[in-house]
Nucleic acid binder design. Structure first.
Lengths: 111, 111
DNA sequence: TTGGTATAGAACTTATTGGTTGAATATAGA
DNA sequence: TCTATATTCAACCAATAAGTTCTATACCAA
């Protein structure tokens, strides 16, 4: 790998399929077959995404008969949140508040 | 691009060079030449990284004579922080603390 | 207008990513 | 032991990413 923990965490989060997998796992452990259902892609592809999440430390795998249940491990997110929080002042400074508010409104219009 | 805002944000943050660029910009706008100094890479490479950050909405560019100063725009980080914060309970719940501790020990045994 | 400096663009290389399909492995159950 | 189910592995492909070098552009200043 050769790349630092924080980079692996952000890279893992950069894919919407993987974020959706984490969201599912937030409701509890699940096996690959269960996790793959919402996605229009092969089990093998989901298995690969789980491997990426595992390498980022965001999920751990177990064994239950034929199943390899995945479970969420959110700890790496703490460092990611800490990194981002260092920039909070740059979006929450009072002189930015109006800009932020307007941007929020604009974003909502786009949807 | 074809990829959502949050994915672009996380992807932009997944590279340590780009995170370092943002850290520099937190101290104020700077031109490419200035930003490139700490890195052992060509100006063109830094310019490309800035383009990625720009496409993620994290920096905006200006013009000052020959210079193209970049400045930080942290607003996309707010959505990223919000996404991560949904998982905060999974690393801070008191009833998870023991689990976490045990998992850490188990991981260490594996190595 | 000529030259110097800052930056971006274009073309290229190499490595990685995200997907596929088909074979292999692990486990449960008859 | 045989078979079905769940998952991973291996090989492959196309697209993207991260870097390079060289060229082009934009601006200032003499």
């Amino acid at each position: 790998m050769q790349v630092d923990e924080l980079s692996r965490t952000f890279a893992a989060l950069a894919d919407p399929t993987r974020r959706a997998l984490l969201a599912q796992l937030a409701h509890g452990s699940a096996a690959v077959g269960e996790l793959a259902k919402p996605f229009d892609m092969s089990f093998a592809a989901v298995s690969k995404h789980l491997r990426v999440l595992e390498n980022a430390g965001l999920v751990s795998r177990g064994r239950d008969a034929q199943y390899r249940p995945a479970s969420l491990d959110a700890r790496p997110l703490r460092a990611a949140a800490a990194w981002i929080d260092d920039y909070q002042q740059f979006w929450s400074d009072s002189f930015d508040a109006l800009d932020d508010h307007l941007a929020t409104l604009t974003d909502k219009e786009k949807q």
